[in-house]
């Protein structure tokens, strides 16, 4: 007991009264440089400024983000460990890959970024111009479509196209968005799905053609590309949002402190400028709205679950 007194002076008792009094960890589901990481790193200095304690970013890479999610899910709800994660991949982690956490039980603290759309692209030499063309061409023999692993956003979008637009194809999962995009550019597969960011540079260079984006509206940075909904499939919408979560049942007073810091950060001109330069679309949502949006995404994925569960036999 004496040792503990020596090593842990008053912090233990103090933390119960004043929050925050120690550094706050932001656990990121993916590696440095990814979209989740960038959203966190952009806001970190401002969040830290208005929260008043150091905010430390920790990339906990593994199992498509599920290691980080499961880890934070089990942490004490003291507001010192927060998770930065994306929807719908988080829902897919629970529903499709069966990871051990419950999305809706997480405390939804604040949504940071959003409107990070996925897209459908086709190889340069193919004649396809619309989703309809894809559907027609796929009736005789299935097409091949590149994407990333089971449960990823690229996979979810592909399955939506399959189930709701009736495009018939064999899904070919690659290890990264880059590899999938290159496969479409190299005409290894006829079409592909995935993050707009992965495909856009190749579209711009004329190495492949992006047909449509998955969002409810056109992408702000690339308004020339139509949405899948505009092409006649209003029930194919896949929106991505990146938000901050806390372990279940974080006390309300602590939620309020965190939300206030986020709101101030969002009001900061410097943060807005930095986000604009990095072409990040901000989507500030308080706990209630965030929870609602998150539940919507979760329910969509749940509804899709029978389609999304991979076929055990493969092929």
């Amino acid at each position: 007991m004496l040792v503990s007194m020596l090593l842990n002076p008053p912090t233990v008792s103090a933390q119960k009264q004043v929050y925050p009094s120690q550094p706050v960890r932001l656990v990121i589901t993916h590696a440095a440089g990814g979209t989740t990481d960038m959203a966190a790193r952009l806001i970190q200095p401002y969040f830290q400024k208005y929260l008043g304690v150091p905010v430390v970013i920790e990339n906990m890479v593994g199992a498509g983000g599920n290691i980080a999610r499961s880890f934070v899910f089990k942490q004490p709800a003291d507001g010192y460990t927060l998770l930065v994660s994306q929807q719908p991949s988080m829902s897919a982690g629970q529903i499709v890959t069966g990871a051990k956490f419950e999305v809706l039980k997480f405390t939804h603290v604040f949504n940071v970024a959003g409107k990070n759309y996925d897209c459908v692209a086709v190889a340069k030499d193919t004649p396809f111009k619309t989703i309809e063309d894809l559907k027609k061409a796929s009736q005789g023999q299935p097409l091949t479509s590149a994407g990333t692993g089971v449960g990823s956003n690229a996979y979810i979008l592909a399955m939506l196209l399959k189930a709701r637009a009736g495009v018939n194809f064999t899904y070919v999962p690659f290890n990264s968005g880059t590899e999938a995009a290159l496969a479409v550019a190299g005409a290894q597969t006829q079409m592909g799905t995935g993050a707009l960011d992965s495909y856009w540079p190749l579209h711009e260079q004329g190495r492949l053609r992006i047909l449509a984006v998955s969002g409810p509206q056109r992408d702000e940075s690339h308004p020339q590309i139509p949405t899948i909904a505009e092409l006649g499939y209003p029930n194919i919408v896949l929106d991505q949002m990146t938000g901050v979560f806390a372990p279940p049942e974080l006390p309300n007073d602590r939620i309020d402190i965190l939300v206030a810091a986020f709101r101030k950060a969002f009001a900061d001109k410097d943060y807005q400028a930095a986000a604009a330069k990095a072409k990040q679309t901000l989507q500030p949502l308080g706990p209630a709205e965030f929870q609602k949006a998150s539940r919507q995404i979760f329910e969509t994925i749940q509804e899709l679950a029978p389609v999304l569960k991979p076929d055990k036999r493969g092929r």
């Binding site: 590696a31 440095a32 440089g33 990814g34 990481d37 960038m38 968005g177 880059t178 995009a181 290159l182 992965s198 856009w200 540079p201 190749l202 711009e204 260079q205 190495r207």
Partner: peptide, 16 residues
């Protein structure tokens, strides 16, 4: 050349 990263390290270059 292509604007897409070849590895997780170059993804960081791209991010920067």
């Amino acid at each position: 050349t292509l604007g897409i990263p070849g590895s997780s390290v170059t993804a960081i270059f791209l991010a920067a």
